[in-house]
Amino acid sequence: RGFLEKAAVKKMAKAIMADPNKADEVYKKWADKGYTLTQMSNFLKSKTAGKYDRVYNGYVIHLD
């Protein structure tokens, strides 16, 4: 289950990176699912340092 969630989160993160207008909708879905910042950090780990920082930081702001 965790692997599928991670894959889904990364897919949506890539969608945000391609079209930032989708961010609020995606952040709301993640918040509704109760994803914590720790979970998001783990889901968005990448071999490329900083690749998903913008998405993660946007989610931090959304939760605030």
Rank of each mutant, 00 (worst) to 15 (best):
K51R: 07
L63T: 04
F43M: 12
K29S: 13
Y35N: 00
H62T: 03
Y52D: 00
D53A: 07
K33N: 10
T36K: 03
N21F: 10
N57S: 09
G34Y: 02
D64I: 15
D64Y: 11
I61P: 01
T38L: 12
K33W: 15
G34V: 02
F3V: 10
Y59L: 02
R1M: 11
S41G: 10
G2P: 10
V9R: 01
H62S: 05
D64N: 14
L37D: 04
V60A: 14
K11N: 11
V60P: 01
R1K: 13
V26R: 02
I16G: 01
I16E: 00
R54F: 07
K51A: 08
P20R: 05
D24C: 15
A15F: 06
D53C: 10
H62Q: 03
E25M: 11
K29L: 14
K29P: 00
V9A: 04
K14I: 08
I61K: 15
M17R: 04
L37A: 09
K29F: 14
F3M: 12
A8S: 10
Y35P: 00
Y35E: 00
Y27P: 00
V26M: 08
K33I: 12
D19W: 07
F43A: 06
W30C: 03
S41C: 14
G34Q: 05
E25S: 09
G2W: 11
A49M: 11
K51T: 06
D53L: 07
K47I: 06
R54H: 13
Y59N: 01
A13P: 00
K14W: 08
G2M: 12
L63F: 04
M17Y: 04
V26F: 05
G50N: 09
Y52M: 04
Y52F: 08
G58S: 03
Y56C: 05
R1S: 13
N21W: 10
I61N: 12
G58F: 03
E25T: 08
M17Q: 05
H62L: 04
Y56I: 14
K47H: 10
D32C: 15
S41E: 12
L4N: 13
T36I: 03
K51F: 09
V26A: 06
N42E: 14
K28H: 11
A8V: 11
F3K: 14
D53T: 06
D19L: 04
K51L: 11
G58T: 01
H62F: 15
K14T: 07
P20A: 08
S41V: 09
V60F: 06
D19Q: 06
E5L: 07
K10L: 13
Y35M: 05
S46K: 05
L63Y: 03
S41F: 11
E5D: 09
A7K: 14
T36V: 02
D64E: 15
K10N: 04
